Simulated assay, not measured.
Amino acid sequence: MLELKGICKKLGTMDMQDVSLSITPGQYFVLLGPSGVGKTVLIEIIAGLIKPDSGLVLWDDIDITRLAPEKRGFTVVYQDYALLPHMTVAANISFGLRGRATKDDISSRTAELAEMLDITDILKRKPTGLSGGEMQRVALARALAPRPRLLLLDEPFSALDTTSRLKMRRYLKKISQEFSTAVLHVTHDPEEAMFLGDRLGVMLDAKIRQIASPEELFRRPTDAVVAEFLGMQNLLPAHIVAKHVCMVNGQRFELGEDSAEISHVWIKPEEIVLSPEPFRSSARNQLACKVESWEPHGALLAVRIICGELELFSIITHASFTDLNIHKGQDLYATFKSSALHSF
């Protein structure tokens, strides 16, 4: 198990303070945060490429903070692949096994990883001329070849096109399920983190602000700063006025949970139902609103509505958009259940 205790490191304007986390055997841990907050520095501290100013790096309760990188049994995959251009794909994959395994073992391991990552047909080629997705799969195979105790992934998809990124997510999901290797993956993409991570950490301003399961992180962010980074729409300041009741910009909302003290509520856009008339249902919250605008949201549409002093977004299908004949300035009703409001 990897454990970081109170890691501090100052590099230029980046001042990492008191970073602590743990990654259990076989766990896929995703560290999520914008550029410049120290995610890559933390990866390199764990790998032994940078020494922390203070704090400890432990593996199975053994202090490895000052241990040489090559003695840690960790491998790193960077976004720029770092393949050796004069070697074939097969030679790149097996590079870390030289002098550590027999020729037959090297051949077997290379073939196993090539089949898993669908690169068997390019084993004899050199990196020049390979697509970004192919080069990233080769880099991943090379990192996995020596059976690392910990796989460190530094924004591995950032140089890939959308199609290649989606494919690489599936490959990593497959690898995490078939191998027992612990993974630390850093990214700025919340969707990527949700898809891959067993556990997520949010790093902002060179500090870890929250560690939680994907479901818990998006359901209960620790504060508005984390929620805003996660791109959560319909994040609203609120205060409790009675049991299961809060006020938001002059609007009274019923909550599905009992919270004595809150600062914000989040209403999932997917759970706001739009209708031309009010209707009877089990939903406890219904507001008159006007359509302000709309925009694509993946395969759906995000409709921006104004309810008094509130601005909300409702995610609807194209079919619903057509059925409602939505247009700017249209009067509608927004309805949502008390369970659609999440407070923190």
Rank of each mutant, 00 (worst) to 15 (best):
H86N: 05
T163L: 08
L144Q: 02
T110R: 09
W294Q: 04
R280W: 15
G133K: 00
S54D: 12
A242L: 05
S320L: 12
H318M: 04
T40Q: 01
T24G: 06
A90Y: 00
E295G: 08
D18E: 14
G129W: 05
W266Q: 02
G197C: 15
G256R: 04
A82N: 06
T13N: 14
L123Y: 11
L31F: 11
F253W: 01
I272E: 01
L230A: 09
H327R: 15
L274E: 00
P190N: 07
E115A: 12
M116H: 04
A111E: 09
L255C: 07
S320M: 06
L166W: 00
Q17F: 10
L140I: 12
L312K: 14
Q251M: 09
S282R: 06
H86V: 07
E44Y: 13
D53A: 06
F229H: 13
T187S: 02
L230K: 15
L274Y: 00
D154Y: 08
W266F: 14
S213Y: 10
L21D: 03
L32F: 07
L152H: 00
P221E: 05
H244Q: 11
S94T: 07
V241R: 15
M232P: 05
I208R: 01
D205M: 14
K243D: 11
T65K: 05
T13D: 15
D258S: 08
I46T: 00
A82D: 05
E295P: 10
K174I: 05
Q79R: 10
S320H: 11
D53K: 09
Q251K: 14
Q27N: 03
T222G: 15
P214V: 12
V186C: 08
Q210A: 00
D154G: 08
I93F: 06
S94E: 14
S131M: 02
H86R: 09
E311I: 02
F253Y: 08
S35M: 07
L341I: 05
Q330R: 04
D61V: 12
L21E: 06
C307G: 02
G48Y: 11
K328F: 07
G231R: 00
A182E: 03
L160Y: 00
L49A: 15
S131I: 01
D189K: 04
G6P: 03
H239V: 11
L301D: 10
N249F: 09
L49V: 04
G12D: 12
R209M: 13
Q251F: 03
C246Y: 10
T335N: 05
E3M: 11
L32E: 11
F344E: 04
L235Y: 01
A182T: 10
A139M: 15
M232N: 06
G197V: 02
M194I: 05
K5F: 15
L152D: 03
M135T: 01
G329P: 14
S108I: 13
E228D: 13
P127A: 15
A334T: 01
M87S: 03
E44W: 07
I43Q: 03
V41R: 00
H188E: 15
D198N: 15
V226E: 01
F321M: 03
G33R: 01
R170T: 10
Q286W: 13
I50A: 03
T13V: 14
M203Y: 10
Q330A: 08
S314Y: 13
R66M: 12
I23D: 01
A299D: 14
S314G: 04
K207F: 00
L140K: 00
T75Q: 06
